[in-house]
Amino acid sequence: MPILEVQNLSKTYRQMGGETTLAIGDISCKVEPGEFVSFVGPSGCGKTTLLMSIAGLIAPSTGKIIVHGKEVSGPPANLILVFQEFNKSLFAWRSVLGNVRFGLEARGNHSRESANKARSLIELVGLKGFENHYPWELSGGMQQRVAIARALAYEPELLLMDEPFGSLDALTRLELEDTLLKLWEELGTTILFITHDIEEAIYLSDRIWLLSRRPSQIVEELAIDFARPRDQITTRAEARFMGIRNRIYQRINSEGAP
């Protein structure tokens, strides 16, 4: 059974003045447990709207979203959305440890061991020694690591990530991609990832869906079968890597302006 099924999803926004905008045209897709799949599309193509709908944070206009066999009507249990804006999504009044513990507390785990569990997650995302720092004391990349650790503390079966590395510098981004892959391989969480960085999507994913401009639709699905564990140098150096990249790039460009 797929962990996520999107059936004929569309979303219309009513703008001021009564005009309506069709953000998502008609999207259907399925994600199997344990997969790492990405949506790639030009900016403003409704990627975030799509993810927010799947996360149950906004209601779709038509269509159905089914997470683990249940139709989504509000934020589903077993699913966490990681936002691009880590500085707005972390709890500034909680330390790194406090933020990660929040993920456990939200599950109802207030036990003493929860602190130990949080500590081991902090270590896993590479922030050992920063447990008692506040988010503002950390760099952007470290903050997003905290947000990821907090999400994983909740033990979601499905992790949605909305351009999580979009505002980080190129080097930090590569580091975090590898951290994320390592965690994914270790924990087996299903990940649905959104990015406008084509190479990032190829590097990370098992499958990629290309989205058109608004009203967005899936225009192509690509299976990415590079061996795992992947490596920033050798995987990206494979001849097919650039081929896939160029194909995606051309495909997105040929969709033309809205």
């Binding site: 707005k88 929040f102 909740y154």
Partner: peptide
């Protein structure tokens, strides 16, 4: 209170009451 902060609380499955106590009030403190 930042919309993203509230959405974060919601994605973690907080009820409205807990959202108010654990997210909104600290953010407004």
């Amino acid at each position: 209170t930042e919309r993203t902060l509230i959405d974060t609380g919601r994605t973690f499955g907080l009820s409205r009451r807990r959202l108010l106590w654990q997210v909104v009030l600290p953010a407004a403190s």
